[in-house]
Amino acid sequence: MAALGQVVVGVSGSLAGLAALRVAARAARDSGRVLVAVLAWEPPEGEVRYVRNPDSAWAARCARDAAARLDRVFEEAFGGTPPEATVVRRVVRSRPDRALGRPAARPEDLLVLGARTGARIAALRPRVPAHARCPVLTVPAPAFARRERRALRRAMARDFADFAAG
């Protein structure tokens, strides 16, 4: 399995991130690769300020919150862990470009990124190839009207169970 590489996806919880996670899961399943979902986090005030006034209890809480957010993203995207793929979840204290580039280090890997807006992905794109040594696939956010986006953000997988059954 290691010779196949892995599919690495950046997870943020945005609509683009959810779309990227779904595309990455499908790519991992179809190719027989491991899906590595990475959620990068940094202290809200930044690492420089944290270094000046470190608080290990606070940092541990931020890491737990990030892990809970990663679990919520999988719940929102699939209703849990997709059974048809081998999934590794990683919560990394780092900038997203570094956190994503490290696991996507081999040419046979695939890095999948959600593209929320052209400006945001354009800002990330130059940094990612500096760390990733594999193909990079960007997945656009689905196009929805503002009120539809608000409704979808509040929806859970169970909200669609009746729809799928009927």
Rank of each mutant, 00 (worst) to 15 (best):
M1Q: 13
M1S: 14
A2V: 12
A2H: 13
A3F: 14
A3G: 04
L4S: 04
G10L: 08
V11Q: 09
S12V: 10
S14Q: 01
L15R: 08
A16F: 01
G17S: 07
R29C: 09
D30M: 05
S31V: 00
S31M: 02
G32S: 01
V34E: 15
L35V: 01
V38E: 04
L39A: 05
A40C: 01
P44L: 07
E45M: 08
E45R: 11
G46F: 10
E47N: 10
V48K: 01
R49K: 13
P54Y: 06
P54A: 06
D55H: 05
D55L: 02
D55M: 04
S56Q: 14
A57C: 00
W58N: 09
A60S: 14
R61S: 11
C62E: 15
C62T: 13
R69S: 14
R69P: 03
V73C: 14
V73I: 09
F74Y: 04
F78R: 00
G79S: 06
G80S: 02
T81E: 11
P82T: 01
P83W: 04
P83Y: 05
P83A: 13
E84H: 12
A85K: 03
A85W: 08
T86Y: 10
R89L: 08
R90F: 02
R90C: 09
D97W: 14
L100K: 10
R102K: 13
P103K: 03
P103G: 01
R106Q: 09
P107S: 06
D109Q: 06
D109N: 11
V112D: 00
V112Q: 00
L113E: 01
R116W: 10
G118Q: 08
R120I: 03
A122G: 11
L124E: 04
R127T: 02
V128W: 02
P129H: 08
P129A: 05
A130R: 15
H131T: 12
T138A: 14
T138F: 07
P140D: 10
A141V: 07
P142K: 07
R146G: 09
R147Y: 12
R149P: 05
A151T: 10
R153L: 11
R154C: 08
R154G: 07
A155R: 09
M156G: 13
D162W: 11
G166F: 11
